[in-house]
Amino acid sequence: MHYIESGAGTPLVLLHAFPLDARMWNPVRGLLDDQLRVIAPDQRGLGESALDGSSARSVAEPGENRRTAEHPSLDLAAADILALLDRLELPQVVLGGCSMGGYVAMSVLRAAPQRVAGLLLVDTKAVADNDEQRANRLKVADRAEREGTGGWLADSTLPNLLGSTTHERRPEVVAGVRDLVDAQPADGVAWAQRAMAGRPDSVETLRSYTDPALVVVGEEDTLTPPDNARELAGALSGGELVTLPGAGHLPSIESPDAFAEAVRPWLSRLG
C-alpha cells in the first residue's frame, strides 16, 4: 500500500474520499504535521496502491473487465489499513476519513476498535446505501470498466464534490480536483464503487465507540449535509461537531486553513 507521510508526534491516519487519492490531504498536511505524524494512504486500487494488494499497481485497460481476486469489500479495505499500521508498528492511531474514507474508518472500528484512539469523520455517513444508490454505484463501476474514467467521471462527480462557493470563486481548486479524479485507475474506481455498494450500516458501530470523536462537515455539502453530520455526532458518545462555512464535501481541499483550525484544538486535547 502506497502512503504519504510527514511530521512527527501522535500518528494521524487520514483516509481519502472517492474518487480521489491521498493527495487530497496535501493542503492540510503542512498545517498539521508540526504537531502530528500525518500518514495518508492510497486505498486499494486508487492513487499508487495496487488493486490486488501487491506492492506494484497493475491497471486494467478499458473494456478488459478484469477484477481482483478478492470480492470488493470495505472490510478488505480496512484490513489493508490495519496491515499498514502493523507494518509501521503503530498499536494505536487517531483515524480520520472523508466520505469513502469514513466508511473504511468505520470498518476498521468494527474489526479492531482498540487500534483507534480518536476518530475524525469528515463529510461521511454511517447508514448503508438504499437500493437506488446501490444501483447507481454499480452502473458507475460497470461504465468505468467499459470506458475508463477520463472526463465523464469528473463531470459527473465534481458538481457534488465541491461546494457552491468553490465552484464560483475557486476555479483553481475545481481544476485540481478534476485532475485528481481523472488520474484514478478505472479498475480501482470500479472496485471501490462495488465495495461501497455492499457496505453495512455502521450506526451501531459508532454507538459502541466511546473514545473521543470529531465530526467535520462542509456547510455546502449536498452529498452528506450538515443534518447528516449532526446525526453522526449524536451517535457518538464522545462526539463533537464542527461545520465549516464556504466548503462542500471536501473541506480539506476547499478550506484547508479552516479545516486545520477546526481539528487542531481537538487533536491537542487527545495528547
Rank of each mutant, 00 (worst) to 15 (best):
V108I: 11
A112G: 06
L95V: 07
L120I: 01
G63C: 08
L88S: 14
E64P: 08
E64V: 04
N65I: 05
L109I: 01
D131Q: 06
A78N: 10
L84A: 14
R87Q: 15
E89M: 00
A126L: 00
V116M: 08
L120P: 08
E132P: 14
A78L: 11
Y103R: 00
V93G: 07
L76M: 15
L95Y: 08
L85I: 12
G96F: 08
P62T: 10
T68S: 14
L88K: 13
D75I: 15
G102T: 01
A77G: 13
Q114F: 07
G102M: 01
L82K: 03
R66W: 12
A105D: 04
D131V: 11
L88C: 12
L95N: 07
A111Y: 12
G102E: 01
G101D: 03
N65G: 06
L121S: 04
V93K: 09
G63L: 09
A128N: 05
R115F: 08
H71F: 15
P113Q: 05
V93M: 11
R110S: 11
G101M: 00
L95E: 08
R66S: 10
D129M: 10
L109R: 03
E70M: 13
A126V: 02
L119K: 03
V104S: 04
G97P: 02
L74M: 09
S99T: 00
D131G: 09
V104A: 06
Y103Q: 03
E64G: 08
G96C: 11
A78D: 11
Q114L: 09
G101I: 02
L82R: 00
G97T: 01
A105F: 06
E70D: 15
D131P: 05
D123E: 04
V104K: 01
V94N: 00
R110Y: 08
N130H: 09
L82Q: 01
L120M: 09
V94P: 04
V122I: 13
A77H: 11
A83C: 00
V108K: 07
L119T: 02
G96H: 05
A79N: 06
T124I: 00
E64F: 09
G101W: 02
L119P: 02
D80F: 11
T68I: 13
V104P: 00
M106P: 05
P91I: 13
H71R: 15
L74W: 04
L120Q: 02
V104F: 00
V122Q: 14
R110H: 10
Q133R: 09
G63N: 05
R87M: 13
R87A: 14
R87T: 15
L74E: 04
P91V: 12
D131K: 10
Y103I: 01
N130A: 13
S73V: 14
G118M: 06
P62K: 12
